[in-house]
Write a protein that binds this DNA or RNA. Structure first.
Lengths: 93, 93
DNA sequence: TAAATCGGTTTATTAAATAAACCAAATTTT
DNA sequence: AAAATTTGGTTTATTTAATAAACCGATTTA
């Protein structure tokens, strides 16, 4: 049985990656609302995905307010696909 | 986004449940070998699945040696199916 | 009969998930 | 225009989970 990438095998990180797989870019607020997570938890998990090179996190502005934009990287995309593939061993998908 | 049952969202417990979904019964040694887990870890996770009512654990003998037999329960089967269903929201199926 | 092995359980350690507390800048209220 | 509130986060602390290490009694093996 293949092992499940522990970085992706976490509800919140998986949700974030899942969203970023389908959306090209998403900001912090959008991700927080869509995943119904707390800001603290989301911040930590984005850091870990970013540290692994699975996403990029770009801080900028939208008008006067700060805005944190996230995007999945090719590495992250590949990791996600391979995670899904590994999961198939465990599930009737 | 539906939440992923934390009892099932664990590599080892998911592996055990996945095996028990397809096999009707399996003993401790078989599960340890198939999942490549340590006895300690497996013992703990079987306890948790059992405490949740997802599996039954029956201690008996095979010849002179002890034998621990595991089976999935209807509740466990339902939980597994509902977990798979929830996962579909996160994955491209 | 001493040593190793089998089938586990219990206890301790490490790591992860989450929330709580906090902060600076912007906005709203009085 | 100060004070209070909200926004968009980060940092720190706490709880929980995952895993390994140490252990135990019974059974084989040397």
């Amino acid at each position: 049985m293949k092992e499940l990438d522990p970085l992706l095998h976490s509800q919140l990180r998986l949700a974030v990656m899942s969203i970023l797989m389908s959306v090209e870019e998403a900001d912090f607020v959008y991700l927080r609302e869509k995943t119904e997570s707390t800001a603290g938890n989301l911040s930590v998990q984005l850091d870990r995905l970013s540290a692994a090179g699975y996403i990029t996190v770009e801080k900028g502005f939208a008008g006067k307010r700060t805005r944190t934009l996230c995007r999945i990287t090719p590495l992250g995309r590949a990791a996600f696909e391979s995670y899904v593939d590994a999961l198939r061993q465990y599930l009737p998908l």
